[in-house]
Design a binder for these strands. Structure first.
Lengths: 115, 115
DNA sequence: CCCTTGCATTGACAACCATCGATACGATGA
DNA sequence: TCATCGTATCGATGGTTGTCAATGCAAGGG
């Protein structure tokens, strides 16, 4: 709860594998895992993930995502930032456009935690 | 958002398998999935899950959970209710004590969603 | 019968968060 | 250089939520 609070979740969680539920979790480990799960536990962000995954090439730019989700562009941009900071999305700037793609490995890690 | 809002998540989500991310999610499906994930996306609840899983017989009563988690008894009771309504915990009353155990299948379903 | 013990519910409060409109910024093109 | 387009950031706001103290309630035990 000091400096690490301001760090993006991605950096913090990347420092080590997200612990699983087989052994009792301490408070710190639980908070790290919870932050990761919170990034996914939102309707709009789940729609964004599925939309990006279903896009050709597995990537999409913001302009392609705003309409299907039905939210304002700033809101969509906000959600994409959250997912990116959680390490679940990769962002690549191509000219004027920002292209987002899913980090499959990170998503698989998260999935494995609940096994 | 009418009557279904008052229903426990368990009933609502049990009516059908929680959709996965392979196809674009509509708003309704995303909200159902998000409610399920929200139940897990909390440090205290993750600790409770791991603690119950690590308990002998895979079950524990509230009195055994309060101390290790470090939260007040009403708060622990609240979290257990959330997890139970999400279908992730099973509750069994035995005399004065309430015993909670993990619904492994439901947790596995949730894990599979992120695959 | 009380009295204790284990758990759930209620009410209140602070913190967090999803959302939007307005605005800023950077790249591209005329 | 200026206008435009695609994104990101800011500030405000309404709603959600995690937490606790106080209380309620049911089951045993003396």
């Amino acid at each position: 709860m000091t400096a690490s609070r301001e760090l993006p979740v991605a950096l913090e969680a990347a420092q080590c594998c997200p612990a699983d539920l087989t052994a009792p979790l301490d408070r710190a480990g639980a908070e790290r895992l919870a932050r990761l799960l919170k990034a996914v536990a939102d309707p709009a962000r789940l729609q964004l993930l599925s939309q990006i995954k279903a896009s050709p090439g597995g990537e999409a730019c913001v302009c392609d995502l705003t309409a299907p989700i039905g939210l304002s562009q700033p809101t969509v941009s906000h959600h994409l930032k959250v997912l990116t900071e959680a390490g679940l999305l990769n962002r690549e700037q191509r000219g004027t456009w920002a292209w987002y793609s899913i980090d499959g490995q990170r998503l698989a890690e998260l999935s494995a935690v609940l096994a």
